[in-house]
Structure formats: structure tokens, C-alpha cells
């Protein structure tokens, strides 16, 4: 039997035996960022479409959580930096070739936008809220009169944020499992469905819940379709890509991926949502929580499995 034996004298911490440089803060941030992108996208989109009154929770209430999500995500990112004191160097250049530079600047736009949007709708939670400062009142007037522009900025930058979390991975040709541009749409779809799930959790209005459940169901089906494409693309590609796909097709990540991401995160909530839309009584929180759990697991599994995939030479 032909055999190949590779002995390497290298054993750098976090590099060998396989890459282990990105730990839990990265997938956590990807989840929080994608989730915030999803919530902000629907809020701004339905505001632009003039549905503010019929979809109150989507447009006004749900976005109030996004500043917290984004700040927590940024905190996780900062925690993961090894040279924390130099983080400001991100904002001294714009590097078009680096997805991380794109992401850093996108966050610089979308985070303040989420704060402003949340502040404009703070009365959804505290009905008698009054800003104690004069400048804040003037700022509120200003942004209220330019809300349409703000909504367009949010639509565009939330889409960039949602896609970029996937592009960040797909730009690394050194990790074959990540090296597919389908990851951009896949991460966006995952973020949007998570965002829709949160609005379903927050909404108290049945017709609004049904509407968002229907959107969530469509996105879940698209996501399933993208996952099928993901494997088709890999299995028709080079040996390193076939080996990478095998991590999920018989390899060590097979059970976590198919059980948590596909079955628990997509198939089961999609079936429950179909039952709900057919008029059966299903507690709305169950599919929503499963979708959120699936989105989180999707990012954790992709981050860790991707670091195990590599070129062999």
C-alpha cells in the first residue's frame, strides 16, 4: 500500500497541529453582527416601504436591541485582538483588498446609525421619555426630518455588514472550507433569518408575527438551497476543496453541522413555521429560538471547521 508520512519540526502555539487562532469571540461577533444587520435591514426596508404603522415592532421596537448587539460584538472583536492598544490603526487606512478593513469601516457607519435609530424610537419602551439635553432634542428633530436618508443608509450598510461576515471568510484561499463566494449570501441569509426571528420574538401583534414568519420561512428555504449549492460547488472542485467538504460529509464535523445547523436550525423551525402558517397553534417563540440557535451554531461550526481545513503539500 502506498503511504505518505509527513513529519514536521514546527509546533508553533495556535498554528500546529492545525490552525487555532480564531476562538469563540469571532463566531460570537459574526452572529451578533449578522443578527443586528438582519434586524436593521428589515426595520429600514419596511420604513422605506411605508409599513411603519402595520409593522411597528419590526420598524421601531426590535432595532432598539441592535446597539447592544453591535457593542457586544465589537467588544468580542476587541477582546480577540492580540495587540489591543493598536486597534485604532484600523481607522488610519482604507484597504480595499482587505475584507476586514471594509468591515471595520462598515461598523463605523452602521453602529452610530443603529444608536440613532434606537434613540429615535426610545419612546416605544419608555413612552414618557424626554431628552435632558438641548442638543439631544435638536439632534432628534434633525434625524426625524432626515429619517428616510438614514433608512437608506441602514439598508445599504446592513446588507454590506451581513455579506461581509461571510466574505471575510471566503477571502482566505488558505482555508479551503471558507474559500467559496457562496459564503457571502449564506451568511447574509443566516443573519436575515435570525433578524426576522428576533422580531417574531418581540412582536405582540399576530398579523405582524405571521408576516415575519412567512419572510423567515422563505429565507430558511433559500438558506437550505445555498447549503446544497455550497456542497455542489465543493464536490465539483479541486481535491483540497473536496477534502474540505468531507469535514461535513463523513468527517469530524458531520454530526454537529447536520444536526445543529441543518436539522435543528433550518428544517425543524421551517416545518413548525409551515404548521403555524397553516393555522396550527405553535408557540411562535419555539421556531424563532431554534433559528437563532442554528445561526449561532452555523458560525461557530464554520469558524472552527474552517481552521481545520488546509492545503496539503
Amino acid at each position: 500500500m502506498r503511504e505518505e508520512l509527513i513529519i514536521s519540526g514546527r509546533s508553533n502555539p495556535y498554528i500546529d497541529p492545525h490552525l487555532d487562532i480564531w476562538h469563540w469571540p469571532i463566531p460570537l461577533y459574526l452572529f451578533l453582527g449578522g443578527l443586528a444587520a438582519g434586524i436593521l435591514f428589515f426595520a429600514a426596508l419596511f420604513y422605506i416601504l411605508g409599513k411603519e404603522e402595520s409593522l411597528k415592532s419590526v420598524v421601531r421596537k426590535a432595532p432598539i436591541v441592535t446597539p447592544f448587539l453591535l457593542v457586544a460584538g465589537l467588544g468580542a472583536l476587541f477582546y480577540d485582538l492580540n495587540n489591543k492598544l493598536y486597534f485604532w490603526q484600523l481607522y488610519t487606512v482604507i484597504r480595499f483588498e482587505s475584507p476586514m478593513s471594509w468591515g471595520a469601516w462598515t461598523l463605523m457607519v452602521i453602529t452610530p446609525a443603529s444608536f440613532i435609530w434606537a434613540a429615535l424610537h426610545i419612546r416605544e419602551i419608555f413612552p414618557r421619555w424626554e431628552w435632558p439635553w438641548h442638543w439631544a432634542k435638536r439632534a432628534e428633530l434633525f434625524f426625524n426630518s432626515h429619517k428616510y436618508v438614514l433608512a437608506w443608509i441602514m439598508v445599504i450598510f446592513s446588507l454590506i455588514l451581513g455579506v461581509y461576515t461571510g466574505i471575510l471568510f471566503s477571502a482566505f484561499n488558505a482555508r479551503p472550507l471558507w474559500n467559496t463566494s457562496i459564503l457571502g449570501p449564506l451568511f447574509l441569509a443566516s443573519g436575515l433569518s435570525a433578524g426576522a426571528a428576533v422580531t417574531v420574538l418581540i412582536s405582540r401583534d399576530r398579523s405582524e408575527r405571521i408576516f415575519m414568519t412567512r419572510i423567515d420561512l422563505i429565507i430558511l428555504v433559500v438558506k437550505l438551497f445555498l447549503i446544497v449549492h455550497f456542497f455542489m460547488g465543493f464536490l465539483a472542485s479541486t481535491q483540497v476543496h473536496i477534502d474540505a467538504a468531507r469535514l461535513f460529509l463523513g468527517g469530524p464535523w458531520t454530526a454537529p453541522f447536520w444536526v445543529f445547523v441543518v436539522i435543528v436550525g433550518i428544517v425543524v423551525p421551517a416545518l413548525l413555521e409551515i404548521l403555524e402558517l397553516r393555522g396550527r397553534h405553535v408557540p411562535a417563540a419555539i421556531p424563532a429560538i431554534l433559528v437563532l440557535f442554528g445561526s449561532l451554531m452555523f458560525r461557530f461550526i464554520f469558524t472552527f471547521a474552517g481552521q481545520e481545513s488546509r492545503w496539503l503539500y
Binding site: W22, N82, Y86, Q89, N173
Partner: peptide
């Protein structure tokens, strides 16, 4: 100038 993000290590 390095912030220690690890992107280059991964790439």
C-alpha cells in the same frame, strides 16, 4: 501597525 487580528495567519 499590527493589531493582532490574525487575518494574515489565517490567510
Amino acid at each position: 501597525r499590527c493589531i493582532g487580528c490574525g487575518a494574515c495567519i489565517t490567510s
